[in-house]
Design a protein around this nucleic acid. Structure first.
Length: 423
RNA sequence: GCGGGUGUGGUGAAGUGGUUAACACACUGGAUUGUGGCUCCAGCAUACAUGGGUUCGAUCCCCAUCACUCGCCCCA
Protein backbone atom coordinates (compact mmCIF):
# COMPACT_ATOMS: atom_id res chain seq x y z
CA UNK A 1 0.00 0.00 0.00
CA UNK A 2 1.13 3.49 -0.77
CA UNK A 3 1.95 5.73 2.13
CA UNK A 4 0.24 8.56 0.32
CA UNK A 5 -3.06 6.81 -0.21
CA UNK A 6 -3.28 4.98 3.09
CA UNK A 7 -4.22 6.76 6.28
CA UNK A 8 -2.12 6.15 9.41
CA UNK A 9 -2.74 2.93 11.26
CA UNK A 10 -5.69 3.00 13.61
CA UNK A 11 -7.34 5.97 11.95
CA UNK A 12 -10.58 5.83 10.09
CA UNK A 13 -12.38 8.12 7.71
CA UNK A 14 -15.99 8.80 8.50
CA UNK A 15 -17.42 8.73 5.02
CA UNK A 16 -20.37 10.67 3.64
CA UNK A 17 -22.65 7.68 4.05
CA UNK A 18 -21.69 7.39 7.73
CA UNK A 19 -21.75 11.00 8.79
CA UNK A 20 -25.53 11.04 9.10
CA UNK A 21 -25.38 8.49 11.87
CA UNK A 22 -22.74 10.51 13.70
CA UNK A 23 -24.76 13.69 13.40
CA UNK A 24 -27.76 11.85 14.71
CA UNK A 25 -25.86 10.60 17.75
CA UNK A 26 -24.30 13.99 18.41
CA UNK A 27 -27.69 15.61 18.24
CA UNK A 28 -29.02 13.17 20.83
CA UNK A 29 -26.08 13.98 23.05
CA UNK A 30 -26.63 17.72 22.87
CA UNK A 31 -30.35 17.47 23.48
CA UNK A 32 -29.91 15.20 26.46
CA UNK A 33 -27.07 17.16 28.01
CA UNK A 34 -29.03 20.35 27.73
CA UNK A 35 -31.93 18.70 29.50
CA UNK A 36 -29.61 17.56 32.28
CA UNK A 37 -28.03 20.98 32.55
CA UNK A 38 -24.60 20.20 31.14
CA UNK A 39 -22.82 22.73 28.96
CA UNK A 40 -20.53 21.89 26.11
CA UNK A 41 -16.84 22.64 26.40
CA UNK A 42 -14.19 22.26 23.72
CA UNK A 43 -10.65 21.93 24.90
CA UNK A 44 -7.54 21.69 22.71
CA UNK A 45 -6.61 18.43 21.04
CA UNK A 46 -3.16 18.64 22.62
CA UNK A 47 -1.94 19.63 26.06
CA UNK A 48 1.28 19.70 28.02
CA UNK A 49 2.40 16.14 28.54
CA UNK A 50 2.73 16.82 32.27
CA UNK A 51 -1.01 17.34 32.59
CA UNK A 52 -1.72 13.76 31.62
CA UNK A 53 1.19 12.33 33.55
CA UNK A 54 -0.06 14.05 36.64
CA UNK A 55 -3.75 13.67 36.02
CA UNK A 56 -4.03 10.13 34.76
CA UNK A 57 -1.15 8.67 36.69
CA UNK A 58 2.43 7.87 35.74
CA UNK A 59 2.08 4.15 36.11
CA UNK A 60 -1.09 3.64 34.12
CA UNK A 61 -0.91 1.91 30.77
CA UNK A 62 -2.34 4.96 29.08
CA UNK A 63 0.52 7.16 30.22
CA UNK A 64 3.22 4.52 30.12
CA UNK A 65 2.75 3.27 26.62
CA UNK A 66 -0.23 4.71 24.81
CA UNK A 67 0.35 8.43 24.51
CA UNK A 68 1.10 10.33 21.34
CA UNK A 69 3.84 12.54 22.67
CA UNK A 70 6.21 14.78 20.76
CA UNK A 71 8.42 17.77 21.31
CA UNK A 72 7.33 20.94 19.60
CA UNK A 73 9.59 23.57 18.10
CA UNK A 74 9.74 25.41 21.37
CA UNK A 75 11.13 22.29 23.01
CA UNK A 76 7.96 21.63 25.00
CA UNK A 77 6.64 18.14 25.47
CA UNK A 78 3.18 17.98 23.95
CA UNK A 79 0.70 15.11 24.01
CA UNK A 80 -2.40 14.45 21.98
CA UNK A 81 -5.14 14.03 24.56
CA UNK A 82 -5.80 10.36 25.41
CA UNK A 83 -8.95 11.34 27.29
CA UNK A 84 -10.66 14.59 28.15
CA UNK A 85 -11.09 14.62 31.91
CA UNK A 86 -7.69 16.02 32.79
CA UNK A 87 -8.03 18.70 30.13
CA UNK A 88 -11.52 19.65 31.26
CA UNK A 89 -10.24 20.01 34.80
CA UNK A 90 -7.31 22.07 33.58
CA UNK A 91 -9.67 24.38 31.75
CA UNK A 92 -11.94 24.56 34.78
CA UNK A 93 -9.03 25.77 36.86
CA UNK A 94 -7.42 27.99 34.26
CA UNK A 95 -10.67 29.77 33.45
CA UNK A 96 -11.89 29.76 37.02
CA UNK A 97 -15.17 28.20 36.06
CA UNK A 98 -15.73 27.39 39.73
CA UNK A 99 -16.39 31.07 40.29
CA UNK A 100 -19.71 30.95 38.43
CA UNK A 101 -21.37 28.10 40.23
CA UNK A 102 -20.67 25.77 43.06
CA UNK A 103 -21.42 22.91 40.69
CA UNK A 104 -20.04 23.08 37.18
CA UNK A 105 -21.50 20.64 34.68
CA UNK A 106 -19.62 20.16 31.44
CA UNK A 107 -19.79 17.83 28.49
CA UNK A 108 -17.61 17.29 25.47
CA UNK A 109 -17.55 15.39 22.20
CA UNK A 110 -14.28 14.91 20.42
CA UNK A 111 -11.29 12.95 19.21
CA UNK A 112 -8.98 11.21 21.64
CA UNK A 113 -5.69 9.51 20.81
CA UNK A 114 -4.12 6.38 22.18
CA UNK A 115 -1.30 4.43 20.64
CA UNK A 116 -2.87 1.00 21.00
CA UNK A 117 -3.01 -1.98 18.78
CA UNK A 118 -6.15 -1.38 16.72
CA UNK A 119 -8.97 -3.88 16.70
CA UNK A 120 -12.70 -3.91 16.47
CA UNK A 121 -14.04 -0.97 18.44
CA UNK A 122 -10.61 0.38 19.20
CA UNK A 123 -8.77 2.94 17.16
CA UNK A 124 -5.78 5.18 17.68
CA UNK A 125 -7.94 8.17 17.01
CA UNK A 126 -11.36 7.60 18.47
CA UNK A 127 -14.22 9.71 19.69
CA UNK A 128 -15.65 10.13 23.11
CA UNK A 129 -18.62 11.87 24.52
CA UNK A 130 -18.18 12.58 28.18
CA UNK A 131 -19.42 14.66 31.04
CA UNK A 132 -17.76 16.11 34.11
CA UNK A 133 -19.60 17.46 37.13
CA UNK A 134 -17.19 19.47 39.23
CA UNK A 135 -17.62 20.88 42.71
CA UNK A 136 -20.12 18.66 44.47
CA UNK A 137 -19.54 15.63 46.62
CA UNK A 138 -23.17 14.57 46.90
CA UNK A 139 -23.88 11.02 45.76
CA UNK A 140 -26.84 12.50 43.92
CA UNK A 141 -24.43 13.78 41.30
CA UNK A 142 -22.96 10.31 40.85
CA UNK A 143 -26.45 9.01 40.31
CA UNK A 144 -27.30 11.88 37.99
CA UNK A 145 -24.48 11.22 35.59
CA UNK A 146 -25.01 7.47 35.64
CA UNK A 147 -28.62 8.10 34.74
CA UNK A 148 -27.51 10.45 31.99
CA UNK A 149 -25.26 7.77 30.53
CA UNK A 150 -28.02 5.19 30.69
CA UNK A 151 -30.60 7.52 29.20
CA UNK A 152 -28.27 8.44 26.39
CA UNK A 153 -27.79 4.84 25.34
CA UNK A 154 -31.47 4.11 25.79
CA UNK A 155 -32.45 7.12 23.72
CA UNK A 156 -30.64 5.52 20.81
CA UNK A 157 -32.74 2.42 21.27
CA UNK A 158 -29.91 0.23 22.47
CA UNK A 159 -30.93 -2.92 24.27
CA UNK A 160 -29.03 -5.50 26.28
CA UNK A 161 -26.98 -2.97 28.15
CA UNK A 162 -25.49 -3.98 31.47
CA UNK A 163 -24.72 -1.39 34.10
CA UNK A 164 -22.24 -2.37 36.78
CA UNK A 165 -21.29 -0.21 39.69
CA UNK A 166 -18.78 -0.41 42.45
CA UNK A 167 -16.94 1.74 44.91
CA UNK A 168 -13.17 1.74 44.75
CA UNK A 169 -12.78 3.56 48.03
CA UNK A 170 -10.68 6.60 48.69
CA UNK A 171 -7.10 7.28 49.80
CA UNK A 172 -8.07 6.31 53.33
CA UNK A 173 -9.54 2.89 52.76
CA UNK A 174 -8.20 1.70 49.41
CA UNK A 175 -4.60 1.12 50.58
CA UNK A 176 -5.98 -0.93 53.44
CA UNK A 177 -7.90 -3.08 51.03
CA UNK A 178 -4.95 -3.40 48.73
CA UNK A 179 -2.87 -4.74 51.56
CA UNK A 180 -5.54 -7.19 52.57
CA UNK A 181 -5.72 -8.43 49.03
CA UNK A 182 -1.97 -8.88 48.77
CA UNK A 183 -2.06 -10.66 52.07
CA UNK A 184 -4.75 -12.97 50.68
CA UNK A 185 -2.82 -13.82 47.52
CA UNK A 186 0.57 -13.96 49.20
CA UNK A 187 0.71 -17.73 49.53
CA UNK A 188 -1.21 -18.36 46.32
CA UNK A 189 1.26 -16.51 44.13
CA UNK A 190 2.67 -19.65 42.55
CA UNK A 191 -0.72 -20.78 41.34
CA UNK A 192 -1.57 -17.55 39.58
CA UNK A 193 -1.02 -16.99 35.88
CA UNK A 194 2.01 -14.99 34.75
CA UNK A 195 0.00 -11.89 34.15
CA UNK A 196 -1.58 -11.97 37.55
CA UNK A 197 1.75 -12.48 39.27
CA UNK A 198 2.81 -9.17 37.75
CA UNK A 199 -0.49 -7.66 38.80
CA UNK A 200 0.18 -8.60 42.39
CA UNK A 201 2.40 -5.57 42.90
CA UNK A 202 1.03 -3.29 40.26
CA UNK A 203 -2.69 -3.63 40.68
CA UNK A 204 -3.78 -6.60 42.79
CA UNK A 205 -7.42 -5.72 42.26
CA UNK A 206 -7.07 -6.74 38.64
CA UNK A 207 -6.42 -10.33 39.64
CA UNK A 208 -10.04 -10.59 40.61
CA UNK A 209 -11.34 -10.27 37.08
CA UNK A 210 -8.74 -12.46 35.41
CA UNK A 211 -10.29 -14.88 32.95
CA UNK A 212 -7.97 -17.73 33.79
CA UNK A 213 -9.88 -20.50 35.50
CA UNK A 214 -7.08 -21.17 37.92
CA UNK A 215 -6.92 -17.53 39.01
CA UNK A 216 -10.66 -17.43 39.44
CA UNK A 217 -10.55 -20.52 41.62
CA UNK A 218 -7.77 -19.05 43.73
CA UNK A 219 -9.56 -15.77 44.15
CA UNK A 220 -12.66 -17.37 45.63
CA UNK A 221 -13.06 -16.00 49.11
CA UNK A 222 -10.86 -13.01 48.47
CA UNK A 223 -11.75 -9.93 50.47
CA UNK A 224 -14.04 -7.58 48.64
CA UNK A 225 -13.52 -3.85 48.48
CA UNK A 226 -17.06 -3.17 49.52
CA UNK A 227 -16.39 -4.92 52.82
CA UNK A 228 -13.38 -2.74 53.46
CA UNK A 229 -14.75 0.69 52.69
CA UNK A 230 -14.45 3.36 55.33
CA UNK A 231 -17.68 4.74 56.74
CA UNK A 232 -17.68 7.75 54.49
CA UNK A 233 -17.21 5.74 51.30
CA UNK A 234 -19.66 3.12 52.37
CA UNK A 235 -22.35 5.63 53.10
CA UNK A 236 -21.71 7.37 49.83
CA UNK A 237 -21.99 4.12 47.90
CA UNK A 238 -25.23 3.20 49.63
CA UNK A 239 -26.69 6.57 48.74
CA UNK A 240 -25.76 6.21 45.08
CA UNK A 241 -27.52 2.87 44.99
CA UNK A 242 -30.56 4.36 46.67
CA UNK A 243 -30.79 7.16 44.16
CA UNK A 244 -30.44 4.76 41.25
CA UNK A 245 -33.03 2.43 42.63
CA UNK A 246 -35.40 5.29 43.25
CA UNK A 247 -34.96 6.35 39.64
CA UNK A 248 -35.80 2.85 38.44
CA UNK A 249 -32.35 2.19 37.04
CA UNK A 250 -31.37 -1.43 37.22
CA UNK A 251 -27.77 -2.24 37.95
CA UNK A 252 -25.57 -4.93 39.35
CA UNK A 253 -22.95 -4.41 41.99
CA UNK A 254 -19.65 -5.76 40.83
CA UNK A 255 -17.08 -5.69 43.61
CA UNK A 256 -14.48 -6.62 41.04
CA UNK A 257 -15.05 -3.62 38.83
CA UNK A 258 -11.88 -1.56 38.83
CA UNK A 259 -11.04 1.48 36.79
CA UNK A 260 -7.70 1.73 35.13
CA UNK A 261 -6.93 5.36 35.72
CA UNK A 262 -5.43 6.51 39.00
CA UNK A 263 -7.77 9.37 39.64
CA UNK A 264 -10.88 7.39 40.48
CA UNK A 265 -12.29 7.36 44.01
CA UNK A 266 -15.50 6.00 45.44
CA UNK A 267 -18.03 5.37 42.68
CA UNK A 268 -16.90 3.47 39.60
CA UNK A 269 -19.24 2.29 36.91
CA UNK A 270 -19.26 0.74 33.52
CA UNK A 271 -21.88 0.03 30.89
CA UNK A 272 -21.33 -2.96 28.68
CA UNK A 273 -22.84 -4.12 25.46
CA UNK A 274 -21.65 -7.71 25.27
CA UNK A 275 -22.26 -8.41 21.58
CA UNK A 276 -19.37 -6.08 20.81
CA UNK A 277 -16.91 -8.78 21.81
CA UNK A 278 -13.61 -7.90 23.43
CA UNK A 279 -14.29 -4.18 23.41
CA UNK A 280 -17.69 -4.33 25.00
CA UNK A 281 -17.33 -1.46 27.45
CA UNK A 282 -19.37 1.29 25.90
CA UNK A 283 -19.22 3.73 28.77
CA UNK A 284 -17.17 4.03 31.90
CA UNK A 285 -16.63 6.55 34.59
CA UNK A 286 -16.75 7.39 38.22
CA UNK A 287 -15.81 9.84 40.90
CA UNK A 288 -12.40 11.47 41.05
CA UNK A 289 -12.29 13.59 44.14
CA UNK A 290 -8.52 13.76 44.21
CA UNK A 291 -7.79 14.89 40.68
CA UNK A 292 -8.37 18.61 40.91
CA UNK A 293 -6.07 19.01 43.87
CA UNK A 294 -3.53 16.83 42.11
CA UNK A 295 -3.51 19.26 39.21
CA UNK A 296 -3.10 22.22 41.47
CA UNK A 297 -6.56 23.42 42.38
CA UNK A 298 -8.28 23.54 45.70
CA UNK A 299 -9.59 20.16 46.78
CA UNK A 300 -12.76 19.75 44.75
CA UNK A 301 -14.98 16.72 44.42
CA UNK A 302 -15.98 15.65 40.90
CA UNK A 303 -17.60 12.86 38.91
CA UNK A 304 -17.67 12.06 35.22
CA UNK A 305 -17.86 9.44 32.54
CA UNK A 306 -16.88 8.87 28.95
CA UNK A 307 -18.65 7.00 26.19
CA UNK A 308 -16.77 5.46 23.29
CA UNK A 309 -18.65 6.66 20.26
CA UNK A 310 -17.19 4.19 17.78
CA UNK A 311 -18.49 1.44 20.02
CA UNK A 312 -21.87 3.08 20.19
CA UNK A 313 -21.92 3.27 16.42
CA UNK A 314 -21.04 -0.40 16.19
CA UNK A 315 -23.84 -1.31 18.55
CA UNK A 316 -26.23 0.88 16.62
CA UNK A 317 -25.25 -0.89 13.44
CA UNK A 318 -25.59 -4.33 14.99
CA UNK A 319 -29.02 -3.58 16.29
CA UNK A 320 -29.93 -1.86 13.05
CA UNK A 321 -31.15 1.17 14.91
CA UNK A 322 -30.22 3.84 12.47
CA UNK A 323 -31.47 4.14 8.94
CA UNK A 324 -30.22 7.11 7.04
CA UNK A 325 -32.81 9.05 5.12
CA UNK A 326 -31.79 9.20 1.50
CA UNK A 327 -30.82 12.65 0.33
CA UNK A 328 -33.42 13.69 -2.20
CA UNK A 329 -33.17 16.54 -4.63
CA UNK A 330 -36.17 18.77 -5.22
CA UNK A 331 -35.23 19.47 -8.79
CA UNK A 332 -32.76 18.12 -11.30
CA UNK A 333 -32.00 20.29 -14.26
CA UNK A 334 -31.68 18.43 -17.54
CA UNK A 335 -29.99 20.72 -20.04
CA UNK A 336 -29.42 19.83 -23.66
CA UNK A 337 -26.92 21.84 -25.60
CA UNK A 338 -24.64 24.70 -24.69
CA UNK A 339 -27.26 27.39 -24.54
CA UNK A 340 -29.45 25.29 -22.31
CA UNK A 341 -26.43 24.59 -20.12
CA UNK A 342 -25.93 28.23 -19.31
CA UNK A 343 -29.62 28.95 -18.89
CA UNK A 344 -29.88 25.84 -16.73
CA UNK A 345 -26.91 26.80 -14.62
CA UNK A 346 -28.44 30.20 -13.92
CA UNK A 347 -31.68 28.50 -12.95
CA UNK A 348 -29.76 26.08 -10.75
CA UNK A 349 -28.28 28.93 -8.74
CA UNK A 350 -31.61 30.68 -8.48
CA UNK A 351 -33.36 27.55 -7.27
CA UNK A 352 -30.75 27.06 -4.60
CA UNK A 353 -31.01 30.68 -3.57
CA UNK A 354 -34.74 30.11 -3.24
CA UNK A 355 -33.98 27.36 -0.75
CA UNK A 356 -34.49 24.32 -2.94
CA UNK A 357 -32.21 21.32 -3.26
CA UNK A 358 -31.28 21.51 -6.89
CA UNK A 359 -28.77 19.55 -8.94
CA UNK A 360 -27.64 19.24 -12.50
CA UNK A 361 -25.18 17.36 -14.64
CA UNK A 362 -22.29 19.33 -16.12
CA UNK A 363 -20.87 16.68 -18.41
CA UNK A 364 -23.06 17.57 -21.37
CA UNK A 365 -24.41 14.07 -21.68
CA UNK A 366 -27.37 12.72 -23.55
CA UNK A 367 -30.84 13.37 -22.32
CA UNK A 368 -31.24 9.76 -21.38
CA UNK A 369 -28.09 9.87 -19.30
CA UNK A 370 -29.24 13.04 -17.57
CA UNK A 371 -32.62 11.52 -16.82
CA UNK A 372 -30.82 8.61 -15.24
CA UNK A 373 -28.92 11.06 -13.10
CA UNK A 374 -32.14 12.73 -12.11
CA UNK A 375 -33.51 9.39 -11.12
CA UNK A 376 -30.45 8.50 -9.12
CA UNK A 377 -30.60 11.81 -7.32
CA UNK A 378 -34.17 10.86 -6.42
CA UNK A 379 -35.29 14.19 -7.76
CA UNK A 380 -38.86 15.20 -7.22
CA UNK A 381 -38.91 17.09 -10.52
CA UNK A 382 -36.82 17.13 -13.66
CA UNK A 383 -36.56 20.53 -15.27
CA UNK A 384 -35.94 19.91 -18.94
CA UNK A 385 -34.30 22.57 -21.08
CA UNK A 386 -33.61 22.06 -24.77
CA UNK A 387 -33.39 24.27 -27.81
CA UNK A 388 -37.17 24.31 -28.23
CA UNK A 389 -37.73 25.39 -24.67
CA UNK A 390 -35.05 28.05 -24.81
CA UNK A 391 -36.63 29.41 -27.97
CA UNK A 392 -40.01 29.58 -26.33
CA UNK A 393 -38.55 30.77 -23.02
CA UNK A 394 -40.13 27.88 -21.16
CA UNK A 395 -39.01 24.71 -19.39
CA UNK A 396 -40.62 21.33 -19.17
CA UNK A 397 -41.37 20.31 -15.63
CA UNK A 398 -41.56 16.57 -15.20
CA UNK A 399 -42.81 14.96 -12.03
CA UNK A 400 -40.45 12.00 -11.67
CA UNK A 401 -42.95 10.06 -9.63
CA UNK A 402 -46.04 10.34 -11.83
CA UNK A 403 -44.23 11.07 -15.09
CA UNK A 404 -46.66 13.92 -15.73
CA UNK A 405 -45.05 16.90 -17.39
CA UNK A 406 -46.05 20.43 -18.17
CA UNK A 407 -44.54 23.38 -19.95
CA UNK A 408 -43.90 26.31 -17.64
CA UNK A 409 -42.74 29.81 -18.58
CA UNK A 410 -39.21 30.46 -17.34
CA UNK A 411 -40.15 33.28 -15.03
CA UNK A 412 -42.68 31.10 -13.23
CA UNK A 413 -40.47 28.10 -12.66
CA UNK A 414 -39.00 29.12 -9.36
CA UNK A 415 -42.34 30.04 -7.86
CA UNK A 416 -44.01 26.95 -9.23
CA UNK A 417 -41.32 24.61 -7.91
CA UNK A 418 -41.22 26.35 -4.58
CA UNK A 419 -44.97 26.01 -4.21
CA UNK A 420 -44.97 22.37 -5.26
CA UNK A 421 -42.09 21.34 -3.04
CA UNK A 422 -42.81 23.40 0.03
CA UNK A 423 -46.56 23.16 -0.23
C1' G B 1 3.92 -4.70 23.32
C1' C B 2 2.40 -10.36 22.41
C1' G B 3 -0.31 -14.32 19.55
C1' G B 4 -3.79 -16.19 15.33
C1' G B 5 -6.28 -15.17 10.46
C1' U B 6 -6.61 -12.54 5.88
C1' G B 7 -4.91 -9.34 1.49
C1' U B 8 -7.60 -10.92 -6.47
C1' G B 9 -10.40 -4.79 -10.84
C1' G B 10 -14.72 0.76 -7.69
C1' U B 11 -17.31 -3.21 -4.44
C1' G B 12 -18.46 -8.41 -3.35
C1' A B 13 -16.48 -12.86 -4.75
C1' A B 14 -14.54 -17.72 -7.82
C1' G B 15 -9.94 -19.85 -9.33
C1' U B 16 -5.07 -22.33 -11.11
C1' G B 17 2.69 -24.07 -10.42
C1' G B 18 2.58 -22.63 -17.04
C1' U B 19 -2.68 -20.49 -23.07
C1' U B 20 -7.23 -14.56 -23.39
C1' A B 21 -7.77 -14.89 -14.42
C1' A B 22 -14.61 -16.52 -13.98
C1' C B 23 -19.05 -14.29 -12.30
C1' A B 24 -22.17 -10.57 -9.87
C1' C B 25 -22.99 -5.55 -8.52
C1' A B 26 -21.50 -0.66 -9.54
C1' C B 27 -19.99 2.65 -13.39
C1' U B 28 -20.17 4.38 -18.82
C1' G B 29 -22.49 4.01 -23.57
C1' G B 30 -26.37 1.93 -26.63
C1' A B 31 -31.48 -0.68 -27.99
C1' U B 32 -36.10 4.43 -34.60
C1' U B 33 -32.93 10.78 -34.47
C1' G B 34 -35.05 14.97 -26.93
C1' U B 35 -37.14 11.46 -21.55
C1' G B 36 -35.47 7.95 -15.94
C1' G B 37 -36.72 3.75 -12.64
C1' C B 38 -37.65 -2.97 -15.57
C1' U B 39 -35.24 -5.81 -19.55
C1' C B 40 -31.39 -6.69 -23.28
C1' C B 41 -26.42 -5.61 -25.52
C1' A B 42 -21.54 -3.64 -25.22
C1' G B 43 -17.36 -1.34 -22.74
C1' C B 44 -14.31 -0.72 -18.32
C1' A B 45 -7.56 -0.31 -22.14
C1' U B 46 -1.43 -1.97 -17.51
C1' A B 47 -6.84 -6.66 -10.85
C1' C B 48 -4.00 -11.20 -8.17
C1' A B 49 -1.06 -5.73 -1.18
C1' U B 50 4.57 -4.60 -1.54
C1' G B 51 9.67 -6.43 -1.74
C1' G B 52 12.67 -10.58 -1.98
C1' G B 53 13.39 -16.04 -2.61
C1' U B 54 12.42 -21.32 -4.51
C1' U B 55 11.41 -22.89 -9.67
C1' C B 56 12.46 -23.68 -16.57
C1' G B 57 8.05 -20.75 -15.00
C1' A B 58 4.22 -18.23 -9.61
C1' U B 59 -1.46 -14.77 -8.41
C1' C B 60 -1.33 -19.53 -6.34
C1' C B 61 5.06 -22.46 -2.44
C1' C B 62 8.66 -19.88 1.28
C1' C B 63 10.45 -15.32 3.91
C1' A B 64 10.03 -10.19 5.12
C1' U B 65 7.28 -5.69 5.14
C1' C B 66 2.72 -3.12 5.17
C1' A B 67 -2.47 -3.03 5.87
C1' C B 68 -6.88 -5.03 7.66
C1' U B 69 -9.02 -8.38 11.14
C1' C B 70 -9.72 -11.50 15.72
C1' G B 71 -7.85 -12.33 20.61
C1' C B 72 -4.35 -11.02 25.00
C1' C B 73 -2.87 -6.65 27.81
C1' C B 74 -5.46 -2.24 28.74
C1' C B 75 -9.33 0.82 27.93
C1' A B 76 -14.24 4.07 25.73
Amino acid sequence: MELLTQGPRGTKDILPGEVDAWLYVEKKIRELCERFGFQEIRTPIFEHTELFQRGIGDTTDVVEKEMYTFTDRGDRSITLRPENTAAAVRSYLQNKLYADNSLTKLFYIGSMFRYDRPQKGRYREFHQFGVEALGEQSPAVDAEIIILAVRFLQSLGLKDLELSINSVGDPKCRPVYREKLQEFFKDKLDGLCDVCRSRYDRNPMRILDCKSGECQRLSVGAPEITDCLCDECNEHFEKVKEYLTAAGISFTCDPRLVRGLDYYTKTAFEIKYSPLGAQSAVAGGGRYDGLIEEIGGNPTPAVGFAVGLERVMLALEQQKLFNAEPHKADAFIVALGEKAQSVGFKLLVELRDAGLKAAMDYAGRSMKAQMKQANKAMAHYAVILGDDEIAKNVAVLRDMESSAQTEVPMEEIIKKLTDEVKG
